[in-house]
Amino acid sequence: MIGTFYRSPSPEAAAYVEVGSEVNPETVVCIIEAMKVMNEIKAEVKGIITQVLVENAKPVEFGQPLFKVRPS
């Protein structure tokens, strides 16, 4: 997806996930905003977040990794 990466559902809210958060395939980990549409991005794996690779509100391009996850 190409768009702007957001770590939380809104500016004042807490981030969806942090390093150490447990995720399963359906967990929403971030939002990518494209053409004024907020797209909730799901983890698609089960595991633990080990690194957040993109800063909040930065643009992302196709194929760009967003999080490092240690699968469990």
């Binding site: 997806m1 190409i2 053409m35 196709f62």
Partner: peptide, 14 residues
């Protein structure tokens, strides 16, 4: 890729 209007416009916006 090159025919994807949504992706190209997103790229233009960011």
């Amino acid at each position: 890729s090159y025919l994807r209007i949504d992706r190209i416009v997103s790229a233009a916006e960011i």
